[in-house]
Each structure stands twice: as C-alpha cells, then as structure tokens.
Simulated scan of single mutants.
Amino acid sequence: MSDKIPFTFEELVWKSWSHPARLEDCTPAQIAVLEESDPSAKTNEYYLTLIRDEQALKARSQLYNAIMYPREGARRADREFAATAESRVNGCVFCASVHARLFVTFGKDRPSMAALLDEGIGAELPPKLRAIADFAAALAAVPPAAGPEHVAALREVGYSDAEIGDIGNAVAMFAWANRLMLTLGEPERKA
C-alpha cells in the first residue's frame, strides 16, 4: 500500500490491486465499451479492471455520462462540486482530485474547492456550495440522513426541483463509484 495521499488538486493515477485486462487481450466488444466509456479508458487501469464485466461497465458508463454530462439541468460546476464533496466524505482522494479540478474549470472558484479539500465538509463555503456539501454529507451517511431540510436548503439558495434531482444523482453516483474504486485499488502520485 502506498503512502497516504492527502486531498489535492494534483493529478493522480489509480492503481488496481488486481490484474487489469491488457488492451491487446480485449475482445472487439470490450474495446467498443472502453471507447464509449471515456477517452482515456483504454489506458486507464480502473476501466481496464472493470472491463472484465463489459456489460456492467457499459451500464456504469452510460449512467455516469447521463448524470454528469447533460446540457440541461444543474450546472456542470454544481455536479462536479457535489461529486467532490461526496468523494471527500467517502475518502476517495482520486475522485476528489479529478472532480476538484473540473469544478475549478467550470465553476472558476478555486478558493472554495481548496477549502473543501483542505478542511472537509465543514469548511466555510458560499451558500450554494454549503447547501450542496451538507446534502452530500447527509446522503453519504450510513444510513443516509438526507431529508426535507436538505432539499429546502437547496431550494432556498435557488435550485429548482429538477436541479436538486441532478445534484442528488451526482451525489448518489459518487456514493457508489467511490466505494467501487476504493474496493479495487488506490491512488498514486504520477511518476
């Protein structure tokens, strides 16, 4: 096991604890699933680990892409912040680093993201991000503790019911995705 990496904006790599599939051993159907999953999937150990069950990876990638990349609904920055908050709660340093950078790209608010990464969910945040962080933390609790007060807080800062659903989907996606990633491997610093 590698040294513990703190939450960071740094670009990390994810290393599988099992033996990922080798691209040259993948079937044409597996290659097609990798290509539709993510542009980097054919060189990424996470996708090459998941491709052993190509139908599950295909379904996972379609769901992920539908939740995180639609043109309508909640802003992309809000979805990325929700993913990062959930990843911060779950301890998924790899996902937090990826989605923190994406949040900064789309949301143009590095100081708020730095506070979340450095201090955790309790960091001082602008009202909209505070509502997302509280919702993510409550949804991450076991059992989930998100309730009408979290939805009301999101409405109070201006989110529509459809946008709240989008943010909830992003949080729920990462509640699952973080656990899968944390079960199969760990992040490492790039060489």
Rank of each mutant, 00 (worst) to 15 (best):
L116I: 12
D118F: 06
D118N: 10
D118M: 07
G120W: 09
G120A: 09
I121P: 11
A123L: 09
A123T: 08
E124W: 05
K128I: 06
R130A: 03
A131L: 05
A131I: 04
I132K: 04
I132T: 05
A133L: 11
D134L: 13
F135Q: 01
A138C: 00
A138P: 02
L139W: 09
L139I: 12
A140M: 06
V142Y: 10
P143E: 00
P144S: 12
P144H: 07
A145C: 07
A145P: 06
A145L: 09
A146G: 12
G147L: 06
P148E: 04
P148I: 01
E149C: 03
E149L: 01
V151I: 00
A152T: 04
L154W: 01
L154I: 01
E156T: 15
E156I: 12
V157F: 10
V157I: 11
G158L: 06
Y159E: 07
S160D: 01
S160M: 00
D161K: 03
A162R: 15
A162V: 15
E163F: 07
E163H: 07
E163G: 07
G165K: 12
G165W: 13
D166H: 15
D166Q: 14
G168C: 04
G168W: 00
N169M: 14
A170P: 03
A170R: 02
A170S: 02
A172S: 15
A172G: 14
M173R: 11
F174G: 05
F174I: 00
A177P: 03
N178G: 08
N178E: 07
N178I: 09
R179C: 12
L180I: 06
M181Y: 11
L182H: 00
L184E: 04
L184R: 05
